[in-house]
Structures are given as structure tokens and as C-alpha cells.
Amino acid sequence: MNIQPHEYKPIVMRYLNGEATHEEEAMIDAFIKQGEEQAALFNQWMEEWEANIFSTPAPAVDQAWQRLQNAIDHAEDEETSPAHTAATPSDSTPHIGRTVHMQWWHKAVAVAAIIVIIGCAAIWSFSGSTATQTYLCSAPAGSKTQVTLPDGSKVWLNGGSSLAYTNQFNNDNRRVELHGEAYFEVQKHQGKPFTVHTQGYDITVKGTKFNVSAYDNDPISTTTLMEGKVELSDGKQNLSLAPGDAVQLDKATGQLQRYATDGFADGWRSGRLMYPDITLEQFGRVLNRQYNVNVHLANRQCANMRISVMLQNNETIDEVASALTRITGHNITRNGDTLTIQ
């Protein structure tokens, strides 16, 4: 049967909604592989599906996500299991292994789902006759999400992070609330500051690029400025940052400390993580966010051990565990999504 290109659209929509049959999934796969024109059509239809999801009420979004998640899980089960080629690093830097991944369009759909559905959901609350709509954008552990705000500002969320803003967000009220880590590229609007509220302090921006790490369960929050100018205020102190500056907040003492940055604060966006001085317990939290693993310290005496780590080649969690074993001298094992340090 000869199917015209436009006849694939309803099949693609059924797939994106998690409703396609095995035969239809195979048809989509074959269609995309026909060439650039077909792949472009698939991308166009996926963008239309995303736009429709953004206008969908929150309960329906949750249902759509569940259907799509079921479809993705099924697709992963049918893919070839990941196979790794052993590689023995010659130094403390993890080496790259090789992995057989899902077909690229399955992966693209999964990413789209994270960005659109897990990434942003609408929550309604009412005060009198006025409806306030809060948009909550999040990146689950092991993933990253990019969000474009109504004023054109762009935000990249690291794993385990969330960003909230309301339907009152506009050029006169550019305020967001961050839990976790994010990199911001803020559009400049003359006389219209942009404010990031975190647990501990507010960051006021005129138009700039900066990184904020403010996870609720971390003892320290850090703001690093790449371009422009920002001002930090915790209600008691006000600090102005210049490019290359970073400020740490010790949540236990309330102390703010300024220091010169190494320029790699936003390396997590591209998979480059550099920690010249970090405790093993703190690094465990990094691994949880980057790889969605639970790190268990069976030996609490090693929690405060300080190490220097650099990840820059999209290393697998097994490669990271192997390197940590050599660096720390502790036995590190993995069972599913749990990493145990003994």
C-alpha cells in the first residue's frame, strides 16, 4: 500500500500520545529513515504536538505524559540492551565506553516529552475573582531541560531542578523562583529588572548570563556570573558581581563569600563537570542529579573525604564508579540505580 506523506501525520500524533500500535511505530521508523524531507516533516508534526500540549489543562497533561511514558518504556524494552566496551583509564579521569542507544527518533520524542510535559505544567489557584496560573518547569534527575520564558529569556535546568513563574510574568514583573541549578541568559529590558528567588537570597538582573546552584538539600548555594551584572540580596547584605565573580552562601551560618570563578560553573550543560575540591558526600549528590542514581555511603567516615574530579566525555556511571574507586581507595559497587561506597 502506497501511503502519501501527509497520511503519516495522524499516525505520528497517535505515537506521540502513546497510542500507536507496533505496526504504526514501525511505519514511523521507516518513514523517518526515507530522507531529510521526511525527518523534517516528523519534526514539524512534533512541534505542532508540543504546541497543543502547552494549551492542554494540567490534568490532561499528566494523562498524556503517562501514556507517552508507557510508550517510551515499551520502546526501550524492545531496543537492543546497552552494551559496553571495557576501557581501562590510565589516570584518574574516566575514559569513554561505547553504548548502543535507542533509535534517534525514539530519543528525540523522549527529550521532547521531558521538555514539554515534565518540563512545564500549569497549576491554577484562585484568590477572589482573580485566577493565578503558576507554571512549574522541572528537570528530573538524570536529565536537563531548556525553557524559554515569555520575555525571551532562556533558562537551562539541571537534573533535580525546578523553576516557577506565574501568568503575571511580564516586562514589569519578571520574577521566577528556582529550586536546584540553572543557567540563565536573560533578555535585557531597560528599567525592567529580572529577579531570581532562591532559598537564601534573591538575584536581581538587568540582562546577563549567569549560573545558580541552589538545591534545597545542599548546604551551600552558589551564583556565578559570566556576563553583565547581577546583585545579590539576602535581606541583610547586598553584593554586586562582575563577570568572573562567584558568591557562595553557607546556609548554616548565613555567610556570603565572594571568590574568583574557574569559568566552568555551567559545564553541566554540555556534560563537562569540574570539581577541584569537593567532598565525597557532595559529589554523591552530583551523581544523583546527573545520572539518576542513589548514592549510599556505607562507610560514613568517607563522607568528608575531599577529592578532585573532572568529567568531560559523557562518561557512564560505571566508568565514574571505576575512577572513584581508584581515586578514593574505597570499594564502590552498583546494583541497578544504587551506588554503594564502602
Rank of each mutant, 00 (worst) to 15 (best):
L163Q: 12
W156P: 06
Y201I: 03
K188P: 06
F184S: 03
T132Q: 12
V100Y: 07
D202T: 13
Y135N: 10
V196H: 11
K154Y: 00
S125P: 00
I117F: 03
T145L: 07
A122F: 02
S138N: 08
A122D: 07
C120V: 03
S161G: 07
V176N: 04
F169R: 00
G152A: 03
I117Y: 03
S138C: 05
V116N: 15
K192V: 04
S162M: 02
V116I: 03
S125L: 04
Y135R: 14
F194V: 05
A182I: 11
L149G: 10
G142Q: 07
G119M: 00
E185R: 15
Q187Y: 04
G191W: 03
F126Y: 05
Q168M: 09
G160S: 05
G119P: 06
S129K: 12
A182M: 06
H197C: 02
V109L: 10
V111K: 15
A131I: 12
A110P: 00
L157M: 02
F194R: 01
F169E: 00
V111M: 04
A113V: 02
F169P: 09
K188M: 07
G200Y: 07
T166Q: 06
S162Q: 11
G152S: 10
V196Q: 07
R98N: 07
A108W: 02
S143C: 09
K144N: 09
S138Q: 14
A108P: 00
K188R: 15
I118V: 12
G180R: 09
D151F: 05
A182G: 14
P150H: 10
L136Q: 14
K144E: 12
N170A: 13
P193Q: 09
P150E: 13
N167I: 05
P140A: 11
H189S: 12
S162N: 14
V176E: 03
I203V: 15
T99N: 03
E177Y: 05
A131R: 14
A112P: 00
Q199G: 10
T166W: 06
P140E: 08
I115T: 14
W156I: 07
P150Q: 08
H101N: 07
T195K: 11
Q199P: 01
A113W: 08
N158P: 04
G191N: 14
L157N: 09
L136T: 09
T132C: 03
S162Y: 06
Q187T: 15
I114N: 13
